[in-house]
Design a protein around this nucleic acid. Structure first.
Lengths: 229, 229
DNA sequence: GCATTTATTAATGCATACGTAAATTCATGC
DNA sequence: GCATGAATTTACGTATGCATTAATAAATGC
């Protein structure tokens, strides 16, 4: 599951870009554990390339806040503490609410909102089937579609960065949480507000939705003593 | 003028980091013009290092949105269109208002707010002396101090990135704008709201302040036909 | 004279080599 | 047995070299 739009055009990826994606996936999959150190040379060998592309990938990942280059200690996968997660949720909330207001303000027609509608449907089906994995995927899709409708590429880029970290935490906490019934109701309300062009409501409902998500996540991290995800 | 906190500790900067700072400054100073292309080898020669640190610096600058690496065309300094600037201001507005609310909510004592007070004073002196350069510097200081009081390191990092771009545009437009008298009044109101712990007011006042700044900047860019700053 | 193909150039992406400085091990003195 | 200092290892930062391939120029055919 990649956060960037998967362009179907088959452009030849450079080794650096592949290393970037590979390392990112390894971090999300937990193959590179939070807090762990890894030598550039080891990673290079694992990926079957020289140190150069690994280093370049590491520099990019560093500016995305996923790891840290520490001279002579290797790259350190940054753990995300509950306090970090609170920060991340706060930023996400602002950016998504900005998007929700912009979307409501633009007077989108129904087809434009299809991605939102589809994601909502999928979430409802998933909840009915008790399928949390598919729910999480559709939930992610909803939030990203919302941000795209906000039509602010910089907000979208920052959203992707932050959302990556949430995804990482969610893979750990997904099965600890109750069924997201209220969440689905929230999404529908946000959708209706945007469709109706009700800017204030879109912001308010989505803000409350995100606040709940934040509290839920922090509760889970606290309850299960997950201090560095 | 660096956006990162200037740590007084004299740590030996690597060539890559120096190249990063040097290139960034060259972009802000206009030595590397928006839209211009530059070969890695040229830049390397200018900076007196090999291509490697230049490349690493370019990668970092790319993820900050200041330039773009285009195979065989060199690095391209990204121009910032008025539409881009609108996006940037919208993101900045959200992050700063988040900070203003958080700051108001924390119940800071007077000494904590000193950086804000000092910046406001300096701005008033600068305006009285018709010194726009010093005003801009103090204004920047105010906004950054505000974000720091918001106590969200991720928001601060993103703020720095976006604010860099505004600074670049402001060096061009600074002397086209009227004296920022209203702006100073706004700052004082934000300060008072934070001191009083009035979250709603801090958000509302600062939001309006930022909206004005955005409109002013966009007007200037439009009026002077500056389509790629 | 124009289009198409071939040859040349040149800049990148990447591997590799190497000096340097940190970290570790070992040795030595007390 | 411990601390201090010397020797060694090691990982990084950076320079360099080279193969690849896009871009440009040249050449050929019609």
């Amino acid at each position: 599951m990649s956060s960037k739009a998967d362009t179907p055009s088959t452009k030849p990826l450079s080794n650096s870009q592949r290393a970037f994606l590979a390392l990112r996936d390894m971090i999300f999959a937990g193959d590179l554990a939070p807090g762990s150190d890894h030598l550039e040379s080891e990673l290079a060998e694992q990926l079957g390339v020289s140190r150069t592309p690994v280093r370049e990938a590491a520099l990019m990942l560093e500016s995305q806040g996923l790891l840290e280059l520490r001279p002579r200690k290797g790259v350190r996968i940054l753990p995300v503490s509950p306090e970090d997660m609170a920060e991340i949720y706060d930023v996400l909330t602002e950016l998504e609410c900005l998007a929700a207001r912009n979307a409501a303000n633009k007077g989108y027609s129904e087809p434009d909102l299809d991605p939102l509608a589809k994601a909502i449907e999928d979430m409802e089906v998933a909840v009915a089937q008790n399928d949390l994995e598919n729910w999480a995927e559709a939930d992610d899709r909803f939030h990203r579609a919302l941000v795209l409708l906000g039509d602010n590429s910089r907000a979208a880029t920052v959203f992707d960065m932050m959302n990556d970290q949430v995804r990482r935490a969610r893979t750990v906490t997904l099965f600890m949480r109750p069924l997201p019934v209220q969440s689905n109701e929230d999404h529908r309300q946000v959708f209706e507000a945007i469709k109706a062009g009700d800017i204030g409501s879109a912001d308010a409902v989505h803000r409350a939705h995100r606040q709940n998500a934040k509290n839920m996540m922090l509760e889970l991290l606290k309850k299960h003593r997950l201090r560095g995800v």
